[in-house]
Design a protein around this nucleic acid. Structure first.
Lengths: 174, 174
DNA sequence: TATTGTTATACTCTATAACTATA
DNA sequence: TATAGTTATAGAGTATAACAATA
């Protein structure tokens, strides 16, 4: 087991750090949500539904999460098969599928959100409170800055997102 | 275009923020490295080779980057086809493929690293210097904490990494 | 018997295009 | 003609298992 000469070629690179932070968080979130038969994306869908004033359609949910509408079909299928959501044809516009939480879905959402918050707390546990807050605030600032520039560039919030994620978790190689 | 009622159901969630920060960074890195015919992972491989005291084998490079040795074969194939690296059988142990940078590879690495640093600077541009430093330091702290616990848990640095990334960039749904 | 590199295979996730129905 | 949902297909990326050469 040989040690590296410069103690860290990679662990000072922002891309490397972000990637590994994200992967570690995703793994812990997957594990924490497994008892609820949910993945992080499904929890996100349910949270979006619960937070919306008017009941959102599949397309609106997809847009807010930055996923394709064809992908959303499967996510809703999965949630519906578990009894957490229901599809209803909109009366106003019969093309739209309005998605609502069932009672079981609302109950599950509440418990799963507690689990999610615990994962986030545990994840930040190695940091003191000042650093943890600074990290979160910095990420929020970066997220807002990116949302602004994306909007001014193309009018589409998720522009650039799709291309970057095409089957390539870490950035596809040639 | 309807606005959400609570201004941000998702953008206060740590998982969401980390995911989007990583995806945005990966997209910009991909674009910045494209002129060099490199992807971020390939740049990482070259950086690891350049930083190692003794010339590393494919397996050692793979271990340091946390990727499978079967995946490393293709990465080295790609770099070799571009003339950036060469494979040599180790004299000491003829099973090992020692990977070295070519002159073209060293030149390319130097220029690509400049591009990478520019991407990282641009990415942090929306933050003041204090926040940018705090973000980086927090990520380093979290990374080290995770490396420590992984080591004490199983003796394997990349434990948990593999399972989390199996074909599921954002955490696979059932 | 264990390790390194390699290949082949299967699986997951995503995007693209095409189809249906509604507007 | 355009939009919402759906389906089928193809593509990228990874892990798994099996194999050859070497230790």
């Amino acid at each position: 087991m040989k040690d590296e000469c410069p103690p860290d070629v990679l662990s000072r690179r922002l891309g490397y750090l972000l990637k590994h932070a994200y992967v570690a968080m995703a793994a812990e979130m997957d594990a924490a949500l497994a008892p609820f038969r949910l993945c992080p994306r499904e929890l996100g869908v349910m949270a979006v539904i619960a937070a919306a004033c008017e009941q959102p359609s599949q397309l609106e949910i997809a847009a807010r999460l930055g996923v394709d509408r064809t992908t959303m079909v499967g996510v809703i299928d999965s949630l519906e098969s578990k009894g957490y959501v229901e599809r209803h044809r909109s009366d106003r516009d019969r093309r739209r599928n309005v998605v609502t939480l069932t009672a079981a879905g609302q109950l599950c959402l509440g418990e799963a959100e507690v689990a999610r918050e615990r994962v986030e707390r545990d994840f930040l546990a190695p940091l003191d409170e000042t650093s943890a807050t600074a990290l979160t605030e910095a990420l929020v600032t970066l997220h807002r800055a990116r949302a602004d520039t994306d909007l001014s560039d193309s009018g589409r919030v998720v522009a650039g997102h799709r291309a970057a994620t095409a089957g390539a978790p870490y950035g596809g190689c040639a």
